[in-house]
Design a binder for these strands. Structure first.
Lengths: 232, 232
DNA sequence: CGATGTGAAGACTTTCACAGCA
DNA sequence: TGCTGTGAAAGTCTTCACATCG
């Protein structure tokens, strides 16, 4: 239980999977399961067991040979590694369709990311209430970020306004941005951006669909190229 | 302009970037730009120029040495490769918070993915109107999928209902699923799933934040491990 | 000359396979 | 005995560097 680890750098690919493991481990824990092997976890996550072991080995040696992993302890360790041992306030920029949905959604608070504020540049949106939070003017962003020690910002503006939103977030002191706009944000080195773009996801899917159609329509020439799904 | 290509398998990593290139090329095209070099594209996409060239080389040799790429032609070729030369109807399962936001959002139609139907298992939601589309009962899913030739389904249900939603989609004939629930969906081989999970994204960001804090609080021992953002 | 297209090198990720420990 | 933890092999992705061509 000592907070004395923080070892080697964890590979990006592993960091992206830890939340998935955490999710499913928590779910099994709540169902009363106390121990799981890497095989078990692998089956639940639809990945290879060796990958699970490698991933977990990056955060420490928390398994028991011949037995498996203690679910509760593993949940604790992964949580700590992901920085979930305390809350991270977030600010949302953009109170349109998406901003409202995100604010009203409740998923932020549930997961330990309280919404410190929702901001918009449009005065007609200011002072409306979204998800129990009052929309503030974008000019108030720096104050709130500083006062509430916010380090994560969510960009939920139209594409055209996203770069400005990001610039303001960075200037205010935010160092991680979750971007929902269809734009490649340019930010200084040291700021982390993750973009979630509905259009990109759909286009990746339609690429696969189109291949299936092409294959079915009779593009003989390639032997075994059935588009593999990412889950089994 | 001949539809006679469909060559070698394109790497997943490249497929994931093509939509980003397409987006920014379209944007420049609309701004009147007719030609761009791989350097230019790389700068706009915040990636390496060699990567842009490699990526584009997978879909064909559409550049001109000493000059660059004709933006309009490239837009056309990428679109074709992604299967955007025709529309792909989608169905949305789940008419709750998220389903409503997605349905009302308009992004689907705009991008060539018309919403063929929104479905929910809850009778109280059936017949309400979301984004101009009337919510139907989940039992009507197979009929609509068949009639409208839907191959892409969106899962916008609570986590607990997501696997059932996916099963129904697959049974109805859908072969690509965009999953917004925090669950690893299990689907048959041949079905593509992409999961977009707010919680996962936030946790990846807080991992990076937590490292920054750890570094600042004085975890000397590692030399150069400033968390690199994904954009410049 | 200048920018593409691409082999080859390098980096990262996944998987194998097995030593080693509970 | 059974499952973890991990070197080493295999596979994938990125980057370099340059021959090639408009």
């Amino acid at each position: 239980m000592s907070p004395q680890h923080r070892r080697r750098r964890i590979p990006d690919a592993t960091v992206a999977r830890l939340p998935v493991y955490l999710q499913l481990l928590t779910e099994r824990m709540d169902a009363g399961v106390t121990n799981l092997s890497s095989e078990d976890i692998a089956a639940l996550a639809a990945v290879n067991a060796a990958k699970v072991r490698k991933d977990l080995s990056y955060i420490g040696t928390y398994g028991t040979r011949g037995v498996g992993y203690d679910v509760e302890y593993l949940v604790y360790q992964i949580s700590r590694e992901l920085g979930l041992d305390h809350e991270w306030s977030v600010v949302i920029v953009g109170a349109g369709n998406l901003g409202q949905a995100l604010g009203g959604y409740g998923g932020f608070n549930e997961r330990g990311y309280p919404v410190a504020g929702i901001f918009d540049i449009d005065d007609s949106k200011v002072d409306t209430v979204v998800g129990g939070v009052c929309v503030q003017h974008l000019d108030d962003l720096p104050r709130v970020v500083a006062q509430r020690q916010v380090s994560i910002g969510v960009v939920a503006t139209p594409a055209a306004a996203a770069q400005d939103a990001a610039d303001r977030l960075v200037r205010a002191g935010v160092t991680s941005i979750l971007n929902f706009a269809s734009v490649v944000l340019s930010v200084p080195h040291g700021v982390t951006v993750r973009t979630v773009d509905l259009g990109v996801e759909l286009q990746i899917l339609s690429y696969h669909e189109q291949r299936r159609v092409a294959a079915a329509t009779g593009f003989r020439s390639m032997s075994e190229d059935a588009p593999r799904g990412r889950s089994a």
